[in-house]
Structure formats: structure tokens, C-alpha cells
Simulated scan of single mutants.
Amino acid sequence: MKPSPYQIAAFTAAARERSFSKAAAVLGVTQSSITQHVAKLERLMGTLLFVRRRDGLELTPAAEELFQVSDRLRTLEQIIDEKVASYGALSAGHLRIIANAPRPALPVIAKYTQLHPQVQIDFSLYSWTIAMQKLHERDMDIAIITEPEVVEGVSLHEMSQTPYKLHVRRDYALAGRKAVSLADLNEEIVVMPEDGSFTQRIVDAKVKAAGLQLSRVIKTSTFPVVKEAVLHGVGVGIVLEDSLFPSNNLVALPIREMPETYRHCLVTPPYKRDLRLVRSFVDVALE
């Protein structure tokens, strides 16, 4: 027996949203309808597709394999719908955007929502490693990632380049310097994003190449927490210069051993780049 289009649509929406209730809202049906279609598909396949967790649905290996195909099918259906309808304006829709730093993603999102206020945007920050994992799994519509790995088939657009700098509070002892060396940070408390971040990899490599060791490091979850920690006097932070919203209370100092610049890139899965919503976001980002 073949699965019905309704079963595939319900499964795909639930897998995208990681929620039966959100899937129901997206498809404009009841939650019981979603669960019934998924249950029938599970019986047809003879395997469990979702595990219910407190924070949402977790895909089983069988579901992940099916989702790789069904999500492409749903995207193609969306493209067909758009072409048939010949939309004259973007009056509705839903974009899932991820990034490994708040900027340059948030300024683009702010501009896009002003132009298209009816488009719903889900934005999530992840470590560089998790963001790359989601890109490999095609678990988003758009990703804005610093120096992304090469992924077959994705569309990549460079948005900007920026160096790493040491961020210190304006009243901090180092704030009056024109530049600092990594050796100057040996006795400082250095705040950085968690393991798995691009920053962690770069800083570790630079410190090792210089024959040094940062003895006092505090790791946090995301770039915004690094900024808050520095502003609260916890220590100093090494982050990309334009990854945080500027603050009059912070000073960004060049690091002598880290003069290189790194690319912020916008990437989209190959089968989603032709979606009108995705294309419109890319156009705004690259203006």
C-alpha cells in the first residue's frame, strides 16, 4: 500500500516544525488530523517516526531518512504553487533562518521584516558545529554562517568579512591600548563561546601556534552571552568584530596574532534556493 499525500504532508510538516500542533497550524488542520496521518504512516512503514520529548519531537533514523526526500517534495510543491498563483507580492509565508552569530543575520532580518511584515520568521542561534550539522541535514531554509564548510549543492553568497578583536569594557585596564597580544591575556579571564564554536577553534589554533596557553577561560553558550559577560565585568571577550551590536561601553582592540579576516556567508539548500521567499531574503541580504 502506498502512503497518501496527506500522510506525507502531515509527516513533513511535523518533521519541519518538530511539533504536531505547529504542523497543524502550518497546514490549517487539527492536531488530531496530523497525529492520525502520522500514525497511519508509521503503521504502513512498520516503524516509529517520532519520539516525544519535552522540547518537541525527535526524529528517529527512519524519519530522518524519509524527511530528506519528503522535504524536497514539499519544497517542489511550494515552488509549483508559487508559479501557478503568480504571486504579485509576498503577503505571507514562513522562513526558518539559523546563524552562528547575531550579526550580520539580525540586521538583514530587521530590514526584511520591514519590507515583508506578513512573512513569519523563525530565527535560531547555534554554535558553528551545530549550524553546520543543520546545514548538512537541510534543517533550515537559510543559514548565515562564518566560513562554512563546503557542502555539495548549496548556494553560497559572501556577505562580509571581519577580523577577530578583543572586546573589553571601556573602563577596563586594557581599553587604552591600540592593540594587544595573546600573551597579554595570560592572566586575564577570557570569555568565549562554547566548545564547537568557530571562535573556539580559531583561538585555540592561534594560542597553540604562539606557544602560549590561556589559563583563565570562561565558556558561554552564545555570542550575546559573551557580550553580557564583558559588560558585567566578568572578563574580556574574543569575538568577530561585527558579530555583536555596537556598544558605547565596549572597546574592540586588534589582536596582533589574529590579523586575518573571516567571511560571513549566506547559504541555502539546493532545492530551496528557487523558493520565492528564499530568493527575496537573499536579494535583501546582498543589497
Rank of each mutant, 00 (worst) to 15 (best):
residue 145 I to K: 13
residue 104 P to F: 04
residue 113 T to F: 06
residue 6 Y to E: 15
residue 174 L to H: 10
residue 139 D to H: 11
residue 129 T to F: 10
residue 113 T to K: 15
residue 187 E to Y: 02
residue 121 I to Y: 14
residue 178 K to C: 12
residue 275 L to F: 02
residue 277 L to D: 06
residue 202 I to Y: 08
residue 201 R to V: 10
residue 3 P to L: 11
residue 268 T to R: 07
residue 233 G to Q: 10
residue 183 A to G: 08
residue 259 P to H: 05
residue 15 A to Y: 08
residue 173 A to T: 11
residue 261 T to R: 15
residue 167 H to S: 11
residue 35 T to I: 01
residue 235 G to F: 03
residue 225 V to I: 15
residue 42 E to H: 13
residue 156 L to S: 12
residue 121 I to K: 15
residue 136 H to C: 04
residue 101 A to G: 15
residue 268 T to S: 09
residue 220 T to S: 09
residue 156 L to I: 14
residue 101 A to D: 07
residue 66 L to I: 00
residue 217 V to S: 07
residue 75 T to P: 11
residue 195 D to W: 02
residue 73 L to S: 05
residue 260 E to H: 07
residue 243 S to R: 08
residue 127 S to A: 10
residue 263 R to W: 05
residue 280 S to V: 06
residue 43 R to Q: 11
residue 141 D to P: 10
residue 77 E to S: 14
residue 222 T to K: 14
residue 7 Q to N: 12
residue 30 T to P: 03
residue 75 T to R: 07
residue 35 T to E: 11
residue 39 A to F: 03
residue 82 E to A: 13
residue 149 E to L: 01
residue 158 E to N: 09
residue 177 R to Q: 06
residue 107 P to F: 01
residue 228 E to F: 02
residue 93 G to I: 14
residue 132 M to S: 12
residue 256 R to V: 00
residue 104 P to W: 03
residue 120 Q to A: 10
residue 227 K to T: 14
residue 114 Q to L: 12
residue 18 R to V: 03
residue 260 E to Y: 09
residue 85 A to T: 15
residue 229 A to F: 12
residue 81 D to R: 03
residue 227 K to Q: 13
residue 264 H to N: 11
residue 275 L to M: 15
residue 89 A to W: 02
residue 105 A to M: 00
residue 48 L to I: 05
residue 241 E to A: 10
residue 219 K to L: 04
residue 192 M to S: 06
residue 272 K to V: 05
residue 214 L to G: 12
residue 169 R to C: 03
residue 59 L to M: 01
residue 120 Q to K: 14
residue 150 V to L: 05
residue 202 I to E: 10
residue 80 I to D: 11
residue 57 L to M: 06
residue 27 L to Q: 04
residue 50 F to K: 01
residue 54 R to D: 04
residue 286 L to K: 15
residue 148 P to W: 13
residue 276 R to F: 13
residue 135 L to Q: 02
residue 232 H to D: 14
residue 247 S to C: 08
residue 92 A to R: 15
residue 71 D to F: 06
residue 109 I to V: 11
residue 142 I to W: 04
residue 131 A to L: 03
residue 198 F to T: 01
residue 79 I to D: 03
residue 270 P to S: 06
residue 93 G to W: 08
residue 250 L to C: 05
residue 242 D to F: 12
residue 46 G to D: 00
residue 152 E to Q: 05
residue 197 S to Y: 08
residue 17 E to T: 14
residue 154 V to C: 04
residue 202 I to G: 10
residue 286 L to R: 05
residue 16 R to K: 15
residue 252 A to N: 08
